[in-house]
Amino acid sequence: MSGPVSELAVDGLDAAYGTSQVLFGVSFEVGRGETLALMGRNGAGKSTTFKAIAGVLPPRAGRVSLRGDDVAGRKPYRIARCGVAYVPEDRQVFPEHTVEENLEIAQKRGLDGGVGWSVARAFDSFPLLVPLRRRLAGRLSGGEQQMLTIARALMGNPAVLLLDEPSEGLAPLIVAEIGRLIRELRAAGTTIVLAEQNSRFCLAVATRVAVIDKGSIVWSGNVAQFQADPTVQSRYLQV
């Protein structure tokens, strides 16, 4: 932990789709400027954890604290205004809007009133998007859409960035580009949680690791500890 109050603390989170419960008391903490890799098999509860934090799927029980303030159960737009940006696995660009319009729609002030991110800065950070500025987002490739959704999330000047499977199905060049961005954001003090199955990508960019299995956190520690513990990898991550 980097300070007395975590940037994001999830405590005893339960979530369900209808009658089928997916999360059973998920708990973890992330300090300011840390990058936590939330790892687990398909269906372990990674995406559901993000949806519960972002309010897209209101949790049944538990706390989601942002700098000590419990936001669990608030509406998604309120949680977003508390500094959380959620990048869903299926990206969800606005297909009928141009790249530039996708960014504009997402523009909002940060918690400190900061407007650090502008459309111009987004294009500086994502040079591959520059020539696509006027293209409809629905016409972009998967990798281009992934960059756009990350850029779009940053337009809201978030304190906490939730990235669901940012490297999934992308060309190695784009994965490297996204890795570079994540490290840049961390250096700038953004707190990041990324859900991944690709452990190589995770370990290259994360500072800490939490492993989720069957809806509960079963292991957590820093990257060195994770790499030194082959049993956790074989038990919870390999198919």
């Binding site: 897209v56 998604p76 737009y77 977003a80 869903p88 969800q92 606005f94 997402a106 909002k108 809201g156």
Partner: peptide, 13 residues
């Protein structure tokens, strides 16, 4: 088209 995503960006839909 996608009210949930717009809300996740901080817009009161």
């Amino acid at each position: 088209v996608n009210p949930a995503m717009v809300a996740s960006l901080g817009v009161n839909t």
